[in-house]
Nucleic acid binder design. Sequence first.
DNA 1: CGTACCATTGATCAGGTTCAATGCTCGTGG
DNA 2: CCACGAGCATTGAACCTGATCAATGGTACG
Lengths: 178, 178
Amino acid sequence: MFPERDDLFDLLFSHSKFKTFQKKEILLSPGREVDTIFFIKDGLIRSYRIIDGNDITHHFHKENWFATDYQGFLTNSPCKLYFEAVTDCSVYVIKKDVLLSLYEMHHEIERLGRIIAEQAYLQMVERLKSIQTSDLKERYDLLIKKHPHIYKLVPQKHIATYLGVTPQSLSRIKSYKK
Amino acid sequence: MFPERDDLFDLLFSHSKFKTFQKKEILLSPGREVDTIFFIKDGLIRSYRIIDGNDITHHFHKENWFATDYQGFLTNSPCKLYFEAVTDCSVYVIKKDVLLSLYEMHHEIERLGRIIAEQAYLQMVERLKSIQTSDLKERYDLLIKKHPHIYKLVPQKHIATYLGVTPQSLSRIKSYKK
DNA sequence: CGTACCATTGATCAGGTTCAATGCTCGTGG
DNA sequence: CCACGAGCATTGAACCTGATCAATGGTACG
């Protein structure tokens, strides 16, 4: 997933604040510019946006990886997402300006930044490709195969919107399955 | 689009080979592992994959940016795409191992690598979001507004598959428009 | 001029949406 | 300890968008 370089992460964390959140707590809301990145030490976070009053899941953020409105972060535009703790969570809170100056100062943190961006890209490509080439049933099967614990932790309706469909459609698919 | 640092690009190009291709020439085919990146100095390139015998456009690569099977490049997996010169093209051909060692040697090239990955991510997110939130007509309008020259250079059918629909559907949409 | 490639149009089909009603389950207060 | 309510899942029916299959029409280029 990322280079096995604990020293790098230790350096990063030494410039962060450690924080815990309870299940269902909101870590971050839309509005201001994105100046915060979370690194999830423990727990599961769901990000979502509200479109026409509907809660649409953007992403599930798992432990040992980052969570932020990456698009807002990169383009200096306002945060569009809510971040909600699906389970109790513990996270390192990293400030954007701190991260950027770490990029400047340490070639290796810059590299970490590159690898983060590359991984984010790969995730998006996979998701786009699966939407374009697989039908709903295949996408659902793949998701619960790759991330079985998500299936147990979040309501179906959030998984449905993550897959880009309504909860009703997902429900019907599951009955065909058997 | 990217930092205005001609010296960086000059450094990169000094480790590249300059090459020209004629309209309709294939620059790269699926098969072997991806060891090549193109930087397009001039011209337009279309990448596509063959799925069930059908030509599906993956991306349009414009001048002053990079073109490669980025997914294959990042995951060391075989190239899945064809790259075809839509117009006559001139490109810098950069070898993967050369780029990786430039990353190692120059913090600033590493940064360029980060920015490339970030931009690639942003493009994918935009595309995913437009598929999930816009209907075909809106996506088509947005595409020709943002990239009017593509519209003139490639057949509709390639634009259709880029948008994730059949040429027939795109044709119908256009007649509603007026 | 003819042919090859692309765009358009028509008819039918399939998958997912929407709106609405019903069923299930778990946590809380009486 | 039970009963109720809130939130979620399921199911049904009508509908809509884009896919598919097939035929027709244009046009550029040899």
